[in-house]
Computed example of a mutant assay.
Amino acid sequence: MKPPSLLVIVLNYRTAEMTLRAAEAALADLPAQDVARAELVIVDNDSGDGSAALLEQAIAQRGWGAGHRVRLIRASRNGGFGAGNNIAMRAGMSDGSAPDFVHVVNSDAFLDPGCISALLSHLQANPQAGIVGSHVRGEDDLPHTTAFRFPTIAGEFEGAARLGPVTRLLKSHVVAPPLPSQAAQVDWVAGASVMLRGEMLREIGLFDEGYFLYFEETDLCLRAARAGWHCWYLPQARCVHVGSVSTGMKDWQRMPRYWFDSRHRYFAKNHGRAYALLALLARLSGTGLHHLRCLLTKRRPEEAPGFARDLLAHALTRKRHRPHTTTTRRPATEDHS
């Protein structure tokens, strides 16, 4: 069997120094054997802060560009997480060929030794596996929940209610169940460190660029599942993830509109408008139950300030349009929408 080609992608948005750290960890973990070719692409997602020049200089100074081992691609606009990664996937390998496997690595994710080889070996050993995600932990060594069930109406109610009896009743719909301790098939995995099979991408298409940020991994995994591909969580493939560096999520006082846009798009596109409306009502009902409990127990709600109000306002004010569909596009040439 011919050894596969591997493309590692690190997407940068105004985090140049951290991106270089992530790229360095990924380069150190590139397998020396079992692959015909392994390359890394850094995409600067139109940072506009001098990041691209800094990255270009660092690549040259460190000698990373030799043999096309590392390339920098400058996006002409910031289309979001999916659009930025799609640029690299469409560009493909340095010779223009489509990669057999693509490893998406966040700019604030640092791979442990052996992470890439473990992910690659798992996909090679399981022909129906199209997606495999890493075990992700924080700098405090605590695990991050990165393996999930697909969102449903029942899951929306359970997640918002945050009530023991409700969770027990709807346990099969909990979106974020306890992490498996061994390799396991799951519905979807987070994109901090996830490897994708090129054959699958050529069949189902790349990330849907209608999502600016959030739900794009969920959407991709659902399309893969509907096409018969499996998604796995692999705990032995490990990495450290700082989290929310480029988005500034840790400092958010309110959820941004693009989160609500992405949530609605996911439900309406994949399940229809009626389902999206029921999911909205379930989320609002669960949130109301949670607030009632907090009022009676004199506790503070566990959600972002003004979340329910913002969710309802978004539903009432968003533009009415038919959800886009994602077409299959071959990652062969460098372009972007």
Score class of each variant (00 low, 15 high):
73 I>S: 02
235 P>S: 11
91 A>G: 00
233 Y>L: 06
72 L>V: 02
319 K>G: 05
39 E>Q: 01
306 G>F: 07
293 R>N: 07
146 T>Y: 13
267 F>Q: 07
221 C>M: 10
161 A>R: 06
100 D>E: 04
227 A>P: 00
56 E>W: 10
168 R>F: 13
107 S>R: 02
16 A>I: 08
323 P>F: 15
115 C>Y: 09
107 S>N: 05
277 L>F: 10
40 L>H: 03
324 H>M: 15
281 L>I: 05
284 L>H: 08
82 G>F: 14
187 D>S: 05
333 T>G: 11
222 L>Q: 00
232 W>V: 06
94 S>E: 08
210 G>R: 03
286 G>M: 08
198 G>R: 03
251 D>E: 14
254 R>Q: 09
267 F>Y: 09
142 L>H: 11
156 E>G: 01
179 L>H: 03
183 A>I: 10
252 W>C: 09
216 E>S: 00
67 G>P: 00
294 C>H: 00
117 S>I: 13
194 V>W: 11
284 L>E: 10
83 A>R: 07
243 G>C: 12
65 G>R: 13
39 E>N: 01
195 M>F: 10
35 V>G: 00
258 Y>R: 05
90 R>A: 10
283 R>L: 14
58 A>Y: 10
208 D>A: 09
187 D>P: 00
55 L>T: 03
85 N>H: 06
78 N>I: 07
306 G>H: 01
55 L>K: 02
168 R>S: 08
197 R>A: 11
137 R>E: 12
259 W>E: 10
141 D>F: 15
51 S>E: 07
303 E>K: 08
67 G>C: 10
239 C>S: 01
41 V>I: 11
273 R>W: 14
127 P>V: 13
110 F>W: 04
306 G>Q: 03
324 H>Y: 15
175 V>S: 13
69 R>L: 15
179 L>Y: 06
102 V>E: 10
133 G>D: 04
245 V>D: 07
234 L>M: 10
239 C>L: 09
144 H>Y: 15
36 A>L: 13
106 N>V: 06
116 I>L: 12
24 E>R: 04
337 S>E: 15
110 F>I: 03
296 L>C: 07
238 R>M: 12
40 L>A: 01
140 D>F: 08
113 P>I: 12
260 F>C: 09
35 V>D: 02
187 D>G: 03
103 H>L: 14
34 D>A: 12
110 F>G: 02
66 A>N: 06
176 A>T: 05
166 V>T: 06
270 N>C: 08
199 E>C: 07
91 A>D: 03
35 V>I: 02
